[in-house]
Design a protein around this nucleic acid. Sequence first.
DNA 1: CTTGCTCCTGTAGCCACTACAGAATGTGCA
DNA 2: TGCACATTCTGTAGTGGCTACAGGAGCAAG
Lengths: 131, 131
Amino acid sequence: MVAIGEAARLSGVSIETIRYYEHEGLVAKAGRTASGRRTFSKASIYELRFIKRCRDLGFSIHDAVALRSLANEPANACETVGQLDRNHLTDVRAKIAELRRLESALIELVANCAKEQHDCPMLDALMGQNS
Amino acid sequence: MVAIGEAARLSGVSIETIRYYEHEGLVAKAGRTASGRRTFSKASIYELRFIKRCRDLGFSIHDAVALRSLANEPANACETVGQLDRNHLTDVRAKIAELRRLESALIELVANCAKEQHDCPMLDALMGQNS
DNA sequence: CTTGCTCCTGTAGCCACTACAGAATGTGCA
DNA sequence: TGCACATTCTGTAGTGGCTACAGGAGCAAG
């Protein structure tokens, strides 16, 4: 049993975020000492780490909770997990595509921008009537 | 002079967002009819379009305002615009790189997930001790 | 016994909107 | 003219996922 600061160090989740997770019901409520300080078991630290890994993979909190409860289920978990993963992968790829679109637009716009230029081609494009 | 609904249609910015922009001082305050409804000139619609284009390119509101005021400045605008663009481009590329990292992690994790499997490799990885 | 660290609760802020509620005004048609 | 319906108004609250305080209390080491 460790205090919240140690739990934060061990799990990689910040103190504030741990409290936020508890408040939102995302993880089980921590125990308390006589003076009201939270205490964390090994299990609860693993729980925090699990959530953190999901978040680091870009899963929403909602999905992270879903994954966490799948970890306790015996049957068919793997299939559901795979589905969540593939859905998320689709989202990630859509974001990549969108960002690449932005990237090439930005490259094109900045291409003719330079010092000592009277008219800025990028500003012209942003102000223009077309499209 | 058109009403806010028409301005929204013409600029591509939603009614609520137009009001939000005005409230935040992002665009000039619209004129008003006798009964208090907003009126929009061609110029203010172009202004909205300008902001929208910046936002569509992924610029923050802060940057969009900066770009807008550069459009009214005579000298050296193009260089500053180019700098803003390149900074943003750097951010976009960082995000792409991060998402690609996620993408490959997700692919690897889901690789061995399938129906009828007892242990889920993805859950195992998320729960594991290492790193 | 004091110094300084950790921890507590509760609230506000971030970004850029979006979604109401409830009221007033405007428009088209019989 | 009367009525229905569309549009607009203000103001507030919610979204996601934290982060950053303020102000107070407990705890451990010297």
